[in-house]
Design a protein around this nucleic acid. Structure first.
Length: 535
DNA sequence: AAGGGCACTTAGGATTAGGCGA
DNA sequence: TCGCCTAATCCTAAGTGCCCTT
């Protein structure tokens, strides 16, 4: 392994003299971080302002400290306007910058691993700024400090050309550990966690891991019925811990919930997964509308995305849940005899390599395969096939609760599309009229010229019909996708060989399903899978 | 079995590039 | 050719899961 090391964040450039920030670096720099975010909702949040202010003060001189007593009296708008103008200006002269970016990519964006040139994923060190946690994060607004060469650990081969630190500096450490895949690491100051520079998804090492992941999920496919029978049996166990384990596993299997590791309170946003569900996150309804034994889930999961679902469960599960809830407070754990480590240990005994997250991969992939089978009709057009594919993908995204905020421009973009459809419709009826006219004329004259005209118009009508249909499919697709994110499941949960096989079977161009980056990431699958591939 | 450290995958939002119609 | 809009890419936070120590 040989590489050039990371690209460091550019040093701070003090504000020009005509902007009086009332500060000198480093407090000025920290102030600019806030100013750059001024348009964002973050800066209005109490916690964000409080954390920012506390860290900001640490950077001030004693003079600055005595001048500034209250963040609410600080006005960042002049700085903010300055940065807005700067980024406008940068847009104009972006050509040189693009060239420079390309040069940096060529120099730092690649490494040589086992004699192969490979693309590096994130070769830039994260620049300093204000921490933006997701959801209700207790540390939002804290200062994320600048990473210096002295903070950075380099990992490369002993006999390779070692990356050079900038003049006058040194790395924290240069090590030669071939048991791990990272090239560069450092510790960030907000959570104290380690950050890494690793290879791009197109690399051999990432591809092989990805392939392995899906092979494990396919092994689960072979024994999943046995496991299901097992956990259903365990619902009746004498032991509470076994019952809890079995009900949790049922949720993970049926609802594709995440495992739910414990988190340190006060360090992160309050989110949960299956094993960390609390009493307050579920409600039981012995009857709801025309259904019996309904469980209502309402909690914040990864990235503070809300999971809301109502599911009828079997009577035995329902009775167990009632039991688990007995004599508990809302903030108590639902599964008090269970955690992810216990669950995974159990799963490991059931199948080699089995963990909670394999269920998500398995259920996602098998759902895609089933949905594709169900939704694709042989005689439909290519655009219709793509709609079917996206709908299958969507079923998975819904299962995995992959949501997104509706795009800010959603309404407008729908409207634009509708306008196009209306225009196309008008064009269609006009052309149909012309076709009718041509037919009438041909009936009257029976000559060659009019016959040709009928053909021309017939073709035109057909073409416009196709265009119209394509637009309508697009509109349907976009509407259905308003709050659903397809990318995450496509990239992380769906065995790409299923898609490759589908594409080959129905002669759909690969690039309609996978863009360039995705084709690079899934090159192994494109190579491997034929149209008869079964997950 | 509790708890921290570490390495890796998964995640949604922000930013940028580039395709397309005027 | 320009400007707008969408799609692609970038960014980095937030998970999972295993290992080691006590």
């Amino acid at each position: 392994m040989e590489h050039k090391g990371p690209v460091l964040a550019p040093p701070y450039e003090p504000l020009p003299v005509h902007i009086d920030s009332h500060f000198i670096a480093p407090a000025e720099e920290v102030a600019t971080f806030f100013a750059k975010m001024l348009d964002h909702e973050y800066t209005t949040k109490e916690m964000f302002r409080k954390n920012f202010y506390k860290d900001w003060r640490k950077e001030m001189t004693s003079e600055e400290k005595s001048k500034i007593t209250d963040i609410n009296k600080c006005n960042f708008t002049e700085m903010s306007e300055y940065f807005k103008a700067q980024s406008e200006a940068r847009k104009q002269m972006s050509k040189d910058e693009k060239l420079e970016n390309e040069r940096i990519l060529q120099e730092y964006g690649f490494c040589v691993m086992d004699n192969h040139k490979e693309r590096i994923g994130n070769f830039r060190i994260e620049p300093p700024g204000l921490f933006r946690g997701r959801g209700d994060h207790p540390k939002m607004g804290m200062l994320k400090r600048r990473i210096r060469p002295e903070d950075i650990i380099i990992n490369c081969s002993k006999d390779s050309k070692h990356p050079k630190p900038p003049q006058g500096t040194r790395w924290k450490e240069v090590r030669h550990d071939n048991k791990v895949t990272w090239l560069v690491s450092w510790t960030e100051n907000i959570q104290g966690s380690i950050k890494y520079i690793m290879l791009n998804p197109s690399s051999r090492i990432k591809g092989e891991k990805d392939w392995q992941k899906y092979e494990t999920a396919r092994r689960l496919k072979k024994c999943v019925e046995r496991l299901r029978a097992q956990y259903r049996e365990d619902w009746k166990s004498k032991e509470m811990r076994v019952r809890q384990r079995a009900v949790a596993l049922y949720f993970i299997d049926k609802l594709a919930l995440r495992a739910g590791n414990e988190k340190e309170e006060g360090e992160t946003a309050d989110t949960v997964g299956c094993c960390s569900l609390r009493v307050e996150h579920i409600k039981l309804y012995s009857k709801m509308d025309d259904q019996e034994y309904v469980v209502e889930f309402d909690f914040l999961g990864k990235d503070s995305i809300r999971y809301y679902n109502k599911m009828p469960v079997e009577k035995r599960v329902f009775k167990n849940l009632q039991l688990f809830l007995e004599n508990k407070q809302p903030e108590d754990d639902l599964f008090d005899r269970l955690n992810t480590s216990i669950l995974n240990k159990h799963l490991q005994e059931l199948m080699d390599g089995l963990t909670a997250k394999v269920f998500r991969t398995y259920n996602a992939s098998i759902t895609l395969q089933q949905q594709l089978k169900e939704l694709t009709s042989p005689d439909e057009s290519i655009p219709a096939k793509i709609l079917s594919y996206n709908r299958a993908n969507r079923a998975v995204a819904i299962l995995c609760n992959h949501q997104r905020a509706a795009p800010k421009t959603f309404e407008k973009s729908m409207q634009n599309l509708q306008t196009k459809i209306d225009e196309k419709q008008k064009q269609l009826s006009a052309t149909r009229k012309q076709l009718k006219g041509a037919k009438t004329e041909h009936k009257a004259s029976h000559d060659d010229r009019s016959k040709k005209m009928v053909e021309v118009k017939r073709k035109a009508v057909q073409r416009i019909e196709e265009q119209l249909m394509k637009l309508q499919m697009q509109a349907t697709d976009r509407e259905e996708n308003k709050q659903i994110a397809l990318g995450t499941s496509k990239l992380n949960y769906l065995d790409p060989r299923i898609s490759v096989a589908w594409v080959k079977k129905w002669d759909v161009p690969m690039e309609k399903i996978y863009n360039k980056t995705q084709r690079e990431k899934f090159a192994w699958a494109i190579d491997m899978a034929e149209e008869d591939y079964e997950f």
